[in-house]
Amino acid sequence: MLTRSCRLWAVLFMVGMLTLSVQPGVTAPEVDGFMPAWRVGDAWVVEARYRNLAMGEDAWLPPIRWRFHVRSAREVDGEPCFLLHVVPLGRPDLKVQAVLWLAQRDLRPVRVIDVFPLRGVATARRREFDPRRLTPLFPEGALIPYALPLFPFAEPSHTTGPTVVVGEKAVAVASTTFVDRVSQTWSPTPRGFVVELDDGQPGGGIRQEWWKGLPWAVSQSGRAMEVRLVEPAPGEERR
């Protein structure tokens, strides 16, 4: 027979194992704030629905599922990075892909390659990011919903309102540099955080909901598209 103390420890152990089993390969460091934790080999799928805006706010195009895969880890200028490869699930013929170099310490963007079709031929475009100027990652005209906020999110310590970070994003295109005001606002929720990103572009801002224990935002909404994480499915959908 187990003593009362042993039974208590056994229950705690089982609860702990159960918690780990529903969060495969993902942990959220609580000490410095929230950010998803990835390992090489992790993969997930999101589904994006696109508004057919030329036809009106209520017209939609068929969804595309995008597979995100942490394919490897490499250093860029001494910065250890994850290489995240994003492809349209089941639709290689679209010839739209992205490879994101994201710093392992906080997932800040370091380098992005967007692949897109140019008169039927896959073409690559590369972007580098200023290591001295932190900015959330915006797709910049890509079809892929890879917008990524700055991590980690910290719980507000002195106020109950949302935390706001405002900065600038400078993008050099041909001979001209465009500066956009960038803002990131986040608030804690019972399951994680809600974050709003805006870079002043005509597409408008986006809102993402992140849950602790999941590798990507469970949902994203904005004017141009709506996105949801479908695999691994959030808890309610699994039930």
């Binding site: 200028d77 590369r126 972007r127 580098e128 990011f129 200023d130 290591p131 100027r133 993008v171 050099a172």
Partner: peptide, 10 residues
């Protein structure tokens, strides 16, 4: 291309 030392070189 985002502005940074690396991108200026290229």
């Amino acid at each position: 291309m985002n502005r940074c030392a690396l991108s200026l070189r290229s």
